[in-house]
Computed example of a mutant assay.
Amino acid sequence: MLETVFTMFSIAFQALGLATAAVGMFKTFKDSSTPGDRFFSRVLATELGAIRQVWTAAGDLCRRLFRRPRPPTAHTGAAGVMFGAVEFSARGIVQFGPLPDPAQDTDAFKAAVEERLNRAFKLAQEVQHGLGQETKAREEEDQKMGSNLHARIIALDEESKRATIRGLHEQVLGFFCVAIGLVVQSYLDLAY
């Protein structure tokens, strides 16, 4: 009777430990994997790759032994994606109307040219000032976005670490339960 109780206790602890460890491993994988990854896909891909290599090697060995030529195969690669850089340029034309005839009135021509040069200089300064203000505003916005992004990355990193630690804690607890079950089972094997 006591042996049956110990055996059931041992089996229950081992099953509980394996289930807890499996849940912990799944949570750790889920928290550290990219969206869309499946739990065993990486492990199975590695195993299937090894099986394919062994199968190919065995097939090659059989072909060499029986002297049958390998069937021809065609290999194709993925098409490359081309990215082109586009450059834009703009040119503005400022027109002020007709100039007075320099042959008839040189002072009026000189005054009109000076006025136009002053207006063009003033327009250039306004544009330069506007560009400077826009550049400054964009740089400040970039700095704000960079600091917000950095803070978000740190927060996500901390959250990921906490989630991974929770999964590892469950794994350790599960393996501890398995160890207790194995100790009880070993005791039963030695005692009875």
Rank of each mutant, 00 (worst) to 15 (best):
G92V: 12
F13V: 09
F66Y: 10
L117G: 01
Q128A: 03
A85G: 05
H150V: 03
T34F: 13
Q125R: 09
G24H: 06
I11E: 05
Q133H: 05
V54K: 06
F176W: 12
A151E: 09
F13I: 11
D105I: 08
A78F: 12
A151R: 15
E47Q: 11
V43N: 08
R152P: 00
F88D: 09
A179N: 04
Q185D: 05
T7G: 01
G24D: 04
A90N: 07
A78H: 13
F29G: 02
G146K: 14
Q53L: 06
Y187I: 10
S32D: 04
E126I: 00
R52T: 14
F176R: 13
Y187P: 05
D31P: 01
R166V: 09
K30S: 04
R138F: 03
Q104W: 08
R119W: 09
G146L: 04
A57D: 12
Q171Y: 03
A57Y: 11
E114M: 11
G132N: 08
E115I: 09
V113G: 01
A179P: 00
A79V: 15
T56K: 14
E134D: 06
D31W: 15
H169R: 14
A103M: 12
A79N: 00
A191S: 05
L117N: 08
E141N: 07
G17T: 11
C177P: 05
T4P: 10
A137H: 06
T28D: 03
E170S: 02
P98H: 10
T106Q: 10
Q104Y: 07
M1N: 13
S10Y: 06
G97M: 07
F9I: 12
K144D: 01
L123H: 04
E140C: 02
I51M: 15
S32R: 14
H75F: 13
P102H: 04
S89R: 10
V183Y: 10
F66Q: 12
L149M: 08
S33D: 04
A85P: 03
F13G: 02
K161T: 13
E115P: 06
V23I: 15
I165D: 03
E126M: 00
K144W: 01
F66G: 02
F96Y: 09
D142Q: 04
E114L: 12
E140D: 03
E170N: 10
I153Q: 03
G49K: 14
I153K: 13
G77Q: 15
T46D: 02
K136W: 00
V172N: 02
L65V: 09
A111L: 08
G59L: 08
V5K: 15
T135Q: 08
L168V: 13
A21Q: 09
E134L: 14
V184P: 02
Q14K: 15
Q185H: 14
D157M: 12
G17H: 03
V184G: 01
A90I: 06
R38M: 07
L16K: 11
V94K: 05
G84S: 07
G167P: 04
L18T: 11
A137S: 00
E114V: 13
V54I: 13
D37S: 15
G130S: 04
L117H: 12
L48Y: 07
G132D: 00
E3I: 15
V94L: 07
F88P: 03
T73G: 00
D107H: 14
G59T: 11
E158N: 08
T7H: 13
S32N: 13
L2W: 14
K122L: 01
T20K: 10
Q53A: 02
L44I: 14
T28I: 09
Y187L: 09
L48T: 14
L44R: 15
Q133I: 07
H75E: 04
M82N: 04
A57N: 11
